[in-house]
Amino acid sequence: MASRLFYGVLLALILSVLWLLLSGYWFKPLLVGFGVLAVTVALVTTARMGLLDGESVPFARLPQYFKYWSWLGAEIFKANIAVVRIAMAPDLNIKPVMTRVAVSAKSDMARATYANSITLTPGTVTIEVEETGFLVHALTEEFADQDAFRDMERRTIEAVEGRKALAKPRGEAGS
């Protein structure tokens, strides 16, 4: 019960600060009252759904998330350049690949973050999510690099679950 109270207070604080920053109405009592009402409704709904826990209120892990998002942003930028080079090449030598990617992430949040990170990275799309792994469509064989997928999963697990991912042997999941 104490942890639910902690996460409830943390969520209320973050939602209130976010509302104040985004709305810009700091001194209008009626509008601030609407903000308080909106935060209260969100908290009551979240509590009734049983979602006040560390996975659904992950604000304590924000530094790890920012580190991961920064890394992912750089990867997206590099993949964009690679896709543009392929698309602008005179011969347009694209050979799409479907590959299975093994997944060891335990939490639903880590698995969803990993699958979405693959899809956000240009040149790859997560097609299917299964218990043991993902089916990924890659624009070329270079985009289907299993080592790169393992590195992305390791970083996702460290950011979301807060644990070190176990290294997988080379070639565990292949196309």
Rank of each mutant, 00 (worst) to 15 (best):
I86W: 09
A165I: 00
R155I: 06
K78H: 13
I127H: 04
R163K: 15
M152E: 12
S16G: 13
T121N: 03
Q64K: 05
L20V: 01
D147Q: 15
A79P: 03
T99Y: 02
G73Y: 08
A173Y: 05
I127W: 07
L20K: 09
A110S: 05
R154A: 02
M88I: 04
S70T: 15
I14H: 05
R155Y: 06
Y114K: 07
L22N: 06
G123E: 12
L15N: 04
M49Q: 15
S104P: 06
L135F: 06
L139C: 08
I118R: 06
S56R: 15
E142C: 03
Q146M: 05
R150T: 11
S56V: 03
S70H: 10
L13I: 09
L166Q: 14
G33S: 14
L5K: 01
F77T: 08
M152K: 00
K67M: 12
A2G: 11
E131P: 06
S16A: 14
M88T: 09
Y25G: 03
T46Q: 12
S16I: 04
L92P: 04
T46E: 12
F143V: 11
S175M: 04
A159P: 03
V41R: 10
E130H: 03
R154T: 02
G123R: 08
G50Q: 13
P63C: 09
A82L: 14
D108I: 04
D147G: 11
E128K: 13
L31N: 05
F59G: 00
V41K: 10
V39K: 12
A148G: 10
G54Y: 08
G8N: 01
A159H: 02
L43M: 13
S104N: 14
S16Q: 07
N116A: 04
T99K: 03
G73W: 01
A144C: 10
E161I: 03
V125L: 13
A2Q: 15
V103H: 02
R163T: 15
G50T: 14
T140D: 11
V9M: 12
P96T: 13
L21W: 11
L31W: 11
A60W: 10
S104K: 00
R154E: 07
I94D: 13
V84C: 10
V84E: 02
K164P: 00
R61S: 12
A173C: 07
A12M: 14
F34N: 09
A38M: 02
M88F: 08
E142A: 14
G171F: 00
L166W: 00
E153D: 09
D53L: 00
E75H: 01
K164V: 08
M1K: 08
A87V: 12
A105Q: 11
D147A: 15
I76V: 15
A42D: 06
Y68S: 02
V101M: 02
N93I: 10
L92Y: 09
G162K: 07
E158Q: 04
I81Q: 12
S16R: 01
N80P: 02
R48D: 10
G162E: 10
D145P: 06
W71I: 01
T156E: 06
F143D: 14
Y25Q: 11
R170G: 08
P96V: 07
R154I: 05
E158A: 08
V9K: 06
L72I: 04
A102T: 05
Y25L: 09
M49I: 07
S16M: 14
T46K: 02
R150Q: 15
